[in-house]
Design a binder for these strands. Sequence first.
DNA 1: GTCTATATGTGGATAGAC
DNA 2: GTCTATCCACATATAGAC
Lengths: 201, 201
Amino acid sequence: MEGPSFKEQQFKVRENLIVDAANQLLADKGFDLMTMDDVAAAVGVSKGILYKHFPSKESLAAAAMVRVLRGALGAIEALPPEMSAVEKLKAALRWTLESRLAGGLPLLPSGSASLQTSLMTSMEYVGAIFRMNGVVTGLVEQAVRAGDLRGDIPAEVMVHSIYSRTCDPALDFLRRGGRYADADLVAHLVSIAFDGLTARS
Amino acid sequence: MEGPSFKEQQFKVRENLIVDAANQLLADKGFDLMTMDDVAAAVGVSKGILYKHFPSKESLAAAAMVRVLRGALGAIEALPPEMSAVEKLKAALRWTLESRLAGGLPLLPSGSASLQTSLMTSMEYVGAIFRMNGVVTGLVEQAVRAGDLRGDIPAEVMVHSIYSRTCDPALDFLRRGGRYADADLVAHLVSIAFDGLTARS
DNA sequence: GTCTATATGTGGATAGAC
DNA sequence: GTCTATCCACATATAGAC
């Protein structure tokens, strides 16, 4: 009837710290440039420890991606039910952009073949991706039926356009310039994504 | 009164082939994953030769980027003068997306610090970037004055949003799915970039 | 379990023969 | 100028002491 032992709890806590550090480094440098030494140094442990938790760099990155995906899903599901589908989509995009500005959002998988295969063979990752895709696609279709999103473009194309806005490089670039407040930047990018660049008649 | 010798011409021709191959590989795998062995194998020469032409991997990538930037500038300047500014911007975006589909457009610089510094210390690269930025910014401002682009968003933000659309990951992803003709895909993405996802009233 | 030290592979860059 | 062979640094992953 006992819970997990103290050591097991410590192990879990440390694993979380490792994923935290990986998350940060992935957001900062991307998968290719992040090294296991970086992660170890950030956590303050030896490199060998990392391999007691994760069998490879790829699986560590996968764990970080899974945690982010679950967080994003939770953020979407926590939105008030009375909110319209299109407003939920805008809120979701806003959430991811704010998370990126806060510094904790890993970038999209690099072209690394080993990472790709590792992700695609991870049940947790493909499951999270699958669920996320279902939720977003559902929202888009709902918004189209409500007449809030365009009906002349396939839903799948709109879904992937929204995904790509979450990692819009313009965000980092404009933030570096330092000429805009973070909140304004997010508002601008969300507005451009949904309302476009063209002046409304 | 003689032109360049035969060997000098050969040298230039080979250099072009090298940049071609680098271009292709950069578009395919990105800077981090492209190796000098890849380039050498693609050209069909030994690796050492590459260093007779370019002192480093970074400078080779910079040369590829410069050529692309000049090509893009040329494409913009070749547009008919009677075309409106906003139509020119759309045409430019269309041109880059089509170039990417054709397989020959290097992706944006990876986070690699050495590449960044190498690019920023290359007079040719910063010059090309500077000119490109001037042309695009000028077109955006012109389109705003004409009432074709939104006036409630800073021009700089719109400029960088257009840049980021040229490397929209949705293009590769949707093409992989194979459900859409290339031309439709380009048209959809250009339309989403300028007209947005929201239904027009 | 945690560390130090090391094995192993890879990729950028160079040396030397021709 | 072009090749082959090599150096060197670095990163993943592992072995072994404690």
